[in-house]
Simulated scan of single mutants.
Amino acid sequence: MLLKNKVIFLTGGTEGIGFECAKVYQTAGAQLSIISNSEESIKQAAEKLSGETLFIMADVSVAADMERAVAKTATNFGRIDVIHNNAGISNPSKAVHETTGEEWDNLFNINVKGIYNTTRFGIEELKKTRGNILNTSSLVGEIGQQIHAAYSATKGAVNALTKSMALDYAPYGIRVNAVAPAGVWTPMLRAWSRQQPDSLIIANYLNEIHALGYCPEGDVVADACLFLVSEQARFITGCILPVSGGAELGYRRVINQSI
């Protein structure tokens, strides 16, 4: 029970990687506050999760929503030990010159400003518990990706933000880390796949970019997240942990051959 009696504030925890994390965290003994902006996904997640779970309908890009969500979580559970900033979007799959201003702003507001909002309103709770923050990044934040410039830029920002936050909050005993998957089969990845020039080859491409030979489900990332938010990782901070099956070792070569 690595997370026994811990309270985790998890954004985007109703589907994809976030939902896999919710299941793993709950199994490890945590109490969950799950934030989503989708009423339907909340309903579906609530039917599958057991135990004491608080669901909050809120948008991470809206400061007032996050202030309310943090306050409600702290009131309900009496503490917050972990903030896992998992909420994110990947649309659109476009080059920079094809990306509209609205699309650009939406990506940064959710993927980057969302972290700012949860930290701004949640940091005092984490100071009380000497808790930690985990951000869900992506391998593309380090190496880039074709026709996905704005998304890659947000994840590069997440990586830099993670390292700077680790330095800022270390004096309070607060660790800040990130996980950086490559391909992971989630609803978001499936949507991205449909936007590619030749969507029929994407499944094979996603298998081949990973040195281990397959594109995984979200549980492999959830297991890494469990480690990072637990006391097992008590001396790790400022880490951008690849959960990539070795994709970065041959990623550019495979991209050039496949797309």
Rank of each mutant, 00 (worst) to 15 (best):
A149P: 00
K6W: 03
S33F: 04
G213H: 06
M66Q: 12
G144Y: 09
S244W: 00
D168P: 01
A149T: 14
N207F: 05
L161F: 15
K4D: 13
I34D: 02
Q44S: 13
L126I: 07
A150F: 01
Q31G: 02
I8C: 03
V158P: 00
T136M: 11
D59Y: 04
V220Q: 09
F77W: 07
E125P: 02
T118A: 14
K6I: 03
V60F: 04
A153H: 01
N117F: 10
A153K: 02
A46E: 15
Q196H: 07
E124K: 14
L54W: 06
L3Q: 00
T99M: 09
V176E: 03
F235A: 13
C21A: 13
A63K: 11
A178R: 03
S38K: 13
M66L: 15
K128I: 12
N256Q: 15
A191H: 12
I255P: 00
I34F: 05
A149K: 00
N37P: 02
N177W: 03
Q146Y: 13
A74K: 14
E52W: 02
T100F: 04
I110H: 04
S193P: 02
I133E: 05
V220S: 05
N256D: 14
E67P: 01
A153P: 03
G131H: 05
K94E: 08
V179K: 01
G29A: 10
S152H: 02
I209K: 00
R120V: 03
A150W: 00
S90N: 15
S137L: 06
N111F: 09
L107D: 01
L241N: 10
A28L: 11
D223C: 08
E52A: 13
T154Y: 05
G78L: 08
K43Q: 14
E217C: 03
L49P: 07
R68D: 12
N85V: 08
K163I: 12
L3H: 01
L206S: 03
Q145L: 14
S90G: 15
I143M: 10
N135V: 09
T75C: 06
Q146C: 10
F227N: 05
K113Y: 11
N135W: 05
M57D: 11
K155I: 04
E67H: 11
A30G: 07
S50V: 11
R175L: 11
T14S: 09
A224R: 01
Q145A: 12
T162K: 04
S38F: 10
A46P: 00
L161R: 02
I56A: 06
L32M: 08
